[in-house]
Amino acid sequence: MTIKLPDGQEIAVDKEGFMVNPAIWNEEIARHLAKLEGVEELTEEHWAVIKYIRDHYLKNDLAPMIRSICKTTRLPLKKIYTLFPAGPAKGACKWAGLPKPDGCV
C-alpha cells in the first residue's frame, strides 16, 4: 500500500498505515499521517512527543515506555491520550514513523 503526500510523493505503508521504511520519515510525513486520523494541526506538545519517540527508536530500535515519554516531555499521562486519539502505539509511534509495535496493539 502507498499513501500520497501533499507534494505528490508516494510512501509505502503497511495495511495499518505504519511506514514500511521508517528511515525516510520526515516532519511532512508526520503531519500527513496525523491528518489522515483527523488531527489537522500538530502542536508543540505533539512534536515534543513525536520527536522523543523518534530519537528513542533510532537509538534503541524500540518505542519508549510511556513513563519516559511523560518524564521527558513533562506531559501528564492523560494528556498523551488526548493528544493522540489512537493512543501512544497506533497514534504517536505511527506518526513518528515507527513500525507497528509487537504485542496486544
Binding site: L77, G87, C104
Partner: peptide
C-alpha cells in the same frame, strides 16, 4: 500484567 499496560496503558 499484560505488557501493554506498563508500556503504553498503565491506568
Amino acid at each position: 500484567l499484560n505488557p501493554r499496560e506498563p508500556k503504553f496503558f498503565p491506568l
